[in-house]
Amino acid sequence: MSSATTLLTAAAISIFALGYASAQEPALQPGEALAEWAGIYAVLSHPRCANCHVEDDRPRWSGPHYGATRVHGFNVQRGTDGSGLGNPGLRCTTCHFESNSKDLHGPPGAENWHLAPAEMVWWQKSSAQICAQIKDPTRNGGRSLEEIARHVRDDKLVGWGWEPGAGREPAPGSAEETYLALERWADAGAPCPVE
């Protein structure tokens, strides 16, 4: 397991190192662009992101103390109005505040905590499926790829994925690195992997 981790990490570093060096350079070759996407997919499919990008109405819990990934406790749901803010009496912000709880297993926090819209589903989706969704304005909140990249860089709740608090594994890389990777991938024509 450790060697696999090392390989993955090395791959991630090389992708991002390349990114920094070549931000102003011409677009990537198709193979490089797909590798760029692979790095982005590693972020989007990571539990810190995917656990709240679900198709059904229930966010997921995962982590060392939760056993296998499971449905968020306490009957927490998207909200019958589809808002992603929870239900009357049990809003996301009933427990999730502006910062992470300092207590192990306490509620993580960031501004405007909520569930992503159901059409933006990442949980248990393949690289090709997420890629198609990201590029589809009917399923990505009507955003251009440039707008998506900036959303990833600037949104506080998205940024939480890299600073999730004690006891939780952060998403790989950083908001800035993922932003740059999205830019390069978009510039290279945003190719998607084939299943």
Partner: peptide, 26 residues
């Protein structure tokens, strides 16, 4: 102490919150 049981529930401006996890500064 981790917003998991609801015994500490109070309202802030009418919204229920778990006061055991809400820092005073917020």
């Amino acid at each position: 102490g981790i917003a998991a049981c609801g015994a500490c529930t109070v309202h802030v401006d009418g919204t229920p919150v778990r006061s055991c996890a809400l820092p005073l500064g917020q």
